[in-house]
């Protein structure tokens, strides 16, 4: 059932770590050009799913196909060539400046000559509003700025699929809205697919085409669909509580 339209396909996936299964029977797929949100309570396994898609941990069971290729050790680098990942912690290299961080993937994989690489990296930093901080070390910038720099690094090679783990955590509403706009713009201009872990419901309703919600108590996926439709669902108390915990959240 490898559908060429799907960039990510999970089939009955069990997510977790060696000796510890976190989620079971997860099935969903993400279409090319889609903005897909992974939702759920803290500790339910969103980052874990993300790490499986990024090829960092092999799935505990089930199948995972990315770009139509089965994710395993042999195929991993081929798949990763088209993926940019931003980790929940940012994971910038502490000994390198922001510019060097963004340059790193370019240095290793871009055919561009060095002068153009620098300009290219600076342009990425500009996109996230950090051009003036290009020469700063990660230790000298704020938490939200680290997140943004990490997004710039994830975009460095213009991958077709970008994974963002809580990009807007620690950002003010204005910057966070600017980030949403950036995601929409990249999708518009380049057809980039985004898979975004987030706790920001307003942002989900604004940018996400579809989302999957995970429930820690049932150790699995509670629902997958269009956010606005899921919000109106009344047959699942967990989903209802998730979308309406604050009364008018996201409306």
């Amino acid at each position: 059932m490898a559908d060429p339209e799907n960039i990510v396909e999970c089939e009955d996936l069990s997510a977790g770590y060696p000796g510890r299964t976190v989620l079971e029977h997860v099935s969903f797929s993400v279409k090319r050009g889609e903005i897909f949100a992974l939702l759920g309570g803290s500790g339910c396994g969103k980052s874990t799913i993300m790490k499986h898609i990024a090829g960092l941990n092999p799935p505990v069971a089930g199948r995972l196909r990315v770009s139509g290729i089965e994710m395993n050790a042999a195929n991993r680098d081929r798949i990763l060539a088209g993926i940019g990942v931003m980790f929940q912690s940012g994971a910038l290299f502490g000994s390198m400046t922001l510019l060097e961080n963004v340059m790193l993937p370019l240095e290793e994989f871009s055919p561009l000559p060095p002068e153009l690489r620098t300009a290219c990296a600076l342009a990425k930093l500009e996109l996230v509003g950090l051009r003036e901080f290009a020469g700063f070390l990660p230790s000298a910038i704020s938490g939200g700025m680290k997140k943004r720099a990490a997004i710039a690094r994830a975009m460095a090679l213009d991958p077709g699929l970008i994974l963002l783990d809580e990009p807007s955590a620690g950002l003010d509403p204005v910057t966070s809205a600017a980030l949403d706009d950036l995601v929409l713009k990249l999708r518009e201009e380049r057809g980039t697919t985004f898979i975004i872990v987030t706790h920001e419901l307003p942002s989900v309703f604004k940018i996400a085409d579809r989302c999957a919600i995970f429930d820690r108590d049932r150790r699995g996926m509670a629902a997958c669909g269009v956010p606005a439709e899921l919000r109106e669902k009344r047959d699942d108390p967990f989903i209802e509580a998730y979308f309406n915990r604050g009364g008018t959240n996201g409306r």
């Binding site: 990024a54 680098d77 980790f87 910038l92 290299f93 502490g94 993937p105 290793e108």
Partner: peptide, 17 residues
Amino acid sequence: AAMKANEEIDALVTMRL
């Protein structure tokens, strides 16, 4: 080890380095 704790090693892997 500090890089590992900060997920920098994971970041290297996803960047195919």
